[in-house]
């Protein structure tokens, strides 16, 4: 994970003149792609753990606010403030409390997912047609059964949309996690900002990761909501 800390160390082997010019060097990239494997895995780890925790917290808040409507406003306001604080600032504000490393990065990244996830969950639950609820009640479902068998399934598309936005946003923000000492692809970008090959490869990996995770959620959504496929 701690591969390259300075611009000197990162460059070796082939393509000497291109590399010396800070150029875009396909051969250097082909030879050095393995350098990016560990930072990429760390990036995946930060993203998945943060979104998973964020999803659990947001779901708990959404279920609570679904029953007690007056909580929606305060929760949106508080998570909105968290969302507004720049991630770089958040990492350093947390350092005295949680120290350098994954914990600080994950706490900050979780905070950013909450507003997106919570709002989509509440919007999804609010969007359930009253007729569907009535039909469920008519079938004798209890409140709990109504929630899990009618409301949550019908809210799934909105929830999954929120999950996709949260996931791609977190991939982007995790690129700044190196400020908190948590590595990731941003650390590689920062290790040699002037070297075109390095910047292009690390940035492209961020984009590919975002696209891959986005596609995975989309597939999961199709599998979870087979009834919406016809529409």
């Amino acid at each position: 994970m701690m591969l390259a800390q300075s611009g000197v160390e990162i460059r070796d082997r082939s393509d000497a003149s291109c590399v010396a010019d800070n150029g875009f060097c396909p051969r250097w990239i082909a030879d050095n792609l393995d350098r990016y494997a560990d930072p990429l895995l760390q990036h995946v780890y930060l993203t998945l753990v943060s979104v998973a925790i964020g999803f659990a917290v947001a779901a708990a808040l959404a279920l609570l606010a679904h029953r007690r409507r007056w909580l929606v406003g305060p929760i949106v306001n508080v998570t909105g403030i968290l969302y507004t604080i720049p991630s770089v600032a958040a990492f350093f504000l947390l350092l005295p409390l949680t120290g350098r490393g994954n914990t600080t990065a994950i706490v900050a990244l979780v905070a950013y997912t909450l507003l997106i996830l919570f709002r989509n969950m509440i919007d999804g639950l609010d969007g359930v047609p009253e007729e569907s609820r009535d039909a469920g009640r008519g079938m004798g479902l209890t409140r709990r059964q109504l929630l899990w068998r009618v409301e949550v399934p019908l809210a799934l598309p909105a929830i999954m949309t929120g999950l996709r936005v949260a996931m791609t946003t977190t991939v982007g923000l995790a690129a700044l996690a190196f400020f908190a000492g948590a590595g990731g692809l941003g650390a590689e970008i920062n290790a040699d900002l002037a070297f075109k090959s390095n910047v292009v490869v690390a940035s492209a990996l961020c984009l590919l990761l975002a696209a891959a995770l986005d596609g995975a959620i989309l597939l999961a959504q199709r599998a979870l909501t087979p009834w919406s496929r016809a529409a």
Binding site: V165, G186, A194
Partner: peptide, 19 residues
């Protein structure tokens, strides 16, 4: 809008700086 969200801010700044 979708692609924009996924591009890390530091990547944008680094790409402009490098090129």
């Amino acid at each position: 809008a979708n692609v924009g969200r996924a591009v890390p801010s530091i990547a944008l700044i680094a790409l402009f700086f490098a090129f």
